[in-house]
């Protein structure tokens, strides 16, 4: 579904991604972990071209992500993204947040968009918030709306960029539950997060990154319990208390 081939990204002299290659199969849940500054968010953002790689190639669902504006928009319509800070549109109601791109990008009618929006709000468990504005919602509710907004585009892949790290602890579970449901339904997901519980329950593959490189890769059990590299062990000992 996603093929990342020899991707490098530099910010000036700083190397954020160093010749990274990675494959994600359809229906697979891939988790990327690593210390901050290791390039995991940059890699995620390269997949839908929010960051432009300096070298290498990324193919999503048969479409090569390059500088062609039409290609980029085509890829982005197939790839949903959930941000750390939700990024709901504050001037629109929850319902309008979910309908906007459906109408403007997918060219659906208002009626059809709303039907899909209501269905997704049921799915993420907050249909009663539909008429409110994002600022009236809790962080956990906002993130669930953001997930619904992405799902409304019927993406083939969902990218999650630290979806729970801006949340209060008691709201993390409600977001993870929605993500778990998605994983069970067979959504292809790439998740940057340190939620080890989610990794154990849902991830098929875990990638450990450091200094722009993939250090270790494998099923969660293997990476978490028998890591091969010192760097991985050190990192895990710091985050698993």
């Amino acid at each position: 579904m996603i093929r990342i081939d020899g991707v490098s990204k530099y910010y000036g002299a700083f190397c954020a991604l160093d010749n990274v290659s990675l494959d994600v199969q359809a229906g697979e849940v891939l988790m990327i972990v690593g210390p901050s500054g290791s390039g995991k968010s940059t890699l995620l953002r390269c997949i839908n071209h929010l960051e432009v790689p300096n070298a290498g190639q990324i193919v999503v669902d048969g479409i090569t992500v390059n500088n062609n504006e039409a290609h980029i928009n085509a890829v982005r319509a197939e790839v949903g993204m959930v941000f750390q800070r939700f990024e709901l549109f504050p001037h629109l109601t929850v319902l309008d947040n979910i309908c906007l791109a459906q109408q403007k990008v997918r060219k659906r009618s208002r009626q059809e968009s709303e039907q899909i929006a209501w269905k997704l709000l049921e799915k993420v468990g907050i249909p009663e918030q539909a008429r409110k504005f994002p600022t009236q919602l809790s962080g956990g509710q906002q993130q669930r709306v953001a997930i619904a907004r992405s799902l409304a585009m019927q993406p083939k892949v969902m990218l999650f960029d630290e979806p729970t790290s801006a949340l209060d602890p008691e709201m993390i579970k409600e977001v993870l539950d929605v993500m778990l449901d998605l994983a069970r339904e067979g959504m292809t997901m790439v998740v940057v997060s340190h939620e080890m519980g989610f990794a154990r329950n849902a991830a098929h593959q875990v990638v450990f990154m450091d200094q722009g490189r993939i250090i270790e890769q494998g099923p969660p059990n293997q990476v978490f319990t028998q890591p091969n590299h010192e760097r991985t062990k050190l990192f895990l000992s710091r985050i698993l208390h």
Partner: peptide
């Protein structure tokens, strides 16, 4: 910037 990134990642031009 996050606002325009969110819009662009939904496929908007």
């Amino acid at each position: 910037r996050g606002q325009s990134e969110a819009a662009r990642s939904l496929g908007m031009s």
